[in-house]
């Protein structure tokens, strides 16, 4: 019986070609970092929470998929997608050309938004030649490396902030949306030191061989853009000034 089922499934998959190859089941494993609020973080209950959790659950509902959340180190988040440990990356990942060569991206769900420098309040900082902290493997780290400043890289976003607080780095460069709550709640200890525009919008990463899954998510993202629910979510998590669709 089981063999027959497998044979039938195989025949079906072969008929439909590559597209069906990886959209095998109704369970989609969503890979995220869980350390980058408000995009994604682990809440007090120990569950994945944040803008992307809410967005992902809604997308899965619209696309009729069962979704399972998985956390993974940022460092190895692409290799683990490619080798099939989960099926999507939904972790505040900006679309870049280098990443696009390895994986595919869905439609963007967050419009391109600025990155910002944060430093200790009242400190004079040379952003062009100073020591700048950034998370490993981010567009910001790439930008700093090419800017002439000295780059210090950290594995988690939280450590980049800690580096500025304890003086290891003069400033940190990260997504402004990530930095804003931290600066606001720092009691005046930290302040913004400038903005730069790097990278495109944020999208979900999907294996190149998984075109059908990509189309499903594209359709769901499009429908959320059309009925305004995506804008409402952006407003809820990123504030009233967040760029909208």
């Amino acid at each position: 019986m089981l063999k027959k089922l497998i044979a039938a499934a195989t025949a079906l998959a072969m008929g439909a070609g590559v597209a069906l190859a990886a959209s095998h089941s109704m369970t989609v494993r969503m890979g995220t970092e869980g350390a980058y609020p408000p995009y994604n973080f682990i809440n007090d209950k120990g569950e994945v929470d944040g803008f992307e959790r809410e967005l992902g659950d809604e997308l899965c509902r619209r696309a009729n998929l069962t979704c399972e959340w998985v956390t993974n180190d940022w460092d190895s988040i692409i290799p683990n997608l490619v080798s099939g440990n989960y099926d999507t990356i939904i972790a505040g990942m900006s679309v870049t050309e280098e990443r696009d060569q390895v994986i595919d991206f869905t439609e963007e769900y967050i419009p391109a938004s600025p990155s910002a420098y944060v430093k200790l309040a009242g400190r004079d900082v040379d952003l062009e030649n100073g020591v700048i902290a950034a998370q490993t493997g981010t567009i910001q780290a790439n930008y700093v490396a090419n800017s002439g400043a000295t780059l210090v890289e950290y594995a988690t976003p939280d450590e980049t902030i800690a580096a500025v607080r304890n003086g290891e780095a003069d400033a940190v460069l990260a997504d402004k949306d990530y930095l804003a709550p931290i600066v606001e709640e720092s009691n005046g200890e930290l302040e913004f030191a400038g903005e730069v525009r790097i990278g495109g919008g944020v999208a979900m990463g999907i294996r190149e061989s998984d075109q059908e899954l990509k189309e499903k998510f594209n359709a769901a993202i499009r429908s959320m853009k059309e009925d305004g629910s995506l804008n409402a979510l952006l407003k809820k998590w990123f504030g009233d000034e967040a760029p909208q669709w």
């Binding site: 499934a9 072969m14 590559v18 369970t27 490619v82 080798s83 099939g84 294996r207 061989s209």
Partner: peptide, 25 residues
């Protein structure tokens, strides 16, 4: 045994759904 797609597709490692460990479901 009848699977005719390549296992390595560019960067991707793609085996048939029944061979996934553990099954993605």
């Amino acid at each position: 045994p009848d699977w005719d797609q390549p296992i390595r597709q560019g960067n991707d490692f793609v085996v048939c759904p029944a061979a996934k460990l553990p099954l993605s479901t």
